[in-house]
Amino acid sequence: MLLLFLSAPGFGAMPIVARVAYADGVDLTTMLFLRLALAGVLMATVMLARGFRWLLGRNLRLLMAMGAPGQAGMSGTSILSSW
């Protein structure tokens, strides 16, 4: 529940951060890369702290195939809407 409440301000601040980054010359690809890389590092940190096992093999490939296009599309659309 704590992570849910911590994520809400992040989603609310995303258009503001995107607008500031765009004004400084950051393009959409760089913005998406930085956002998703930061999310990956945070997720890995939480997984290690809680002792979760990493997905491997077929399960990892399936989840990446389902999640990556949707996440990138949603993030890209959200960022583009604030420019």
Rank of each mutant, 00 (worst) to 15 (best):
7 S>N: 06
16 I>D: 11
70 G>S: 01
26 V>C: 08
26 V>W: 14
51 G>H: 09
13 A>Y: 07
22 Y>N: 00
40 G>N: 15
74 M>I: 11
9 P>I: 12
1 M>A: 15
65 A>F: 10
72 A>E: 01
42 L>N: 02
8 A>N: 09
65 A>H: 11
18 A>D: 07
75 S>Q: 13
25 G>A: 09
60 L>V: 12
5 F>Y: 04
70 G>R: 03
80 L>I: 00
4 L>Q: 12
77 T>D: 00
66 M>V: 02
37 A>P: 07
21 A>E: 04
34 L>N: 13
16 I>T: 14
37 A>F: 13
62 L>D: 13
25 G>D: 12
34 L>P: 00
17 V>K: 07
14 M>E: 03
32 L>C: 09
23 A>H: 01
26 V>G: 00
46 V>W: 11
79 I>A: 07
29 T>F: 01
27 D>G: 08
25 G>K: 05
57 G>T: 05
43 M>Q: 15
27 D>R: 07
32 L>H: 04
44 A>V: 12
44 A>K: 05
60 L>G: 12
9 P>F: 09
32 L>I: 08
32 L>W: 02
78 S>V: 12
44 A>T: 15
15 P>C: 15
74 M>L: 05
70 G>P: 01
31 M>W: 02
29 T>C: 00
39 A>I: 13
21 A>P: 04
20 V>N: 05
46 V>D: 10
73 G>C: 09
20 V>Y: 07
16 I>G: 09
59 N>H: 07
45 T>L: 08
67 G>F: 07
5 F>R: 01
74 M>C: 03
8 A>D: 05
59 N>L: 08
67 G>V: 04
46 V>P: 10
73 G>T: 08
30 T>A: 15
83 W>C: 11
1 M>H: 14
51 G>N: 13
67 G>T: 05
37 A>I: 11
61 R>A: 14
78 S>P: 02
65 A>R: 10
50 R>V: 09
70 G>Y: 00
52 F>K: 12
14 M>H: 00
42 L>F: 11
50 R>N: 14
66 M>E: 01
77 T>I: 03
10 G>Q: 03
34 L>K: 11
18 A>G: 08
81 S>F: 02
79 I>L: 11
53 R>Q: 05
2 L>V: 09
74 M>K: 05
67 G>N: 06
6 L>D: 07
8 A>G: 11
40 G>Q: 10
76 G>C: 12
78 S>G: 13
73 G>N: 03
15 P>D: 14
6 L>E: 07
36 L>K: 03
53 R>P: 07
36 L>W: 00
53 R>W: 04
10 G>D: 03
68 A>R: 04
43 M>W: 10
18 A>F: 07
17 V>E: 05
66 M>T: 00
61 R>P: 00
67 G>R: 01
80 L>W: 02
34 L>H: 09
59 N>R: 12
66 M>A: 11
59 N>K: 10
32 L>D: 01
74 M>F: 13
5 F>E: 00
47 M>Y: 09
20 V>D: 05
42 L>Q: 08
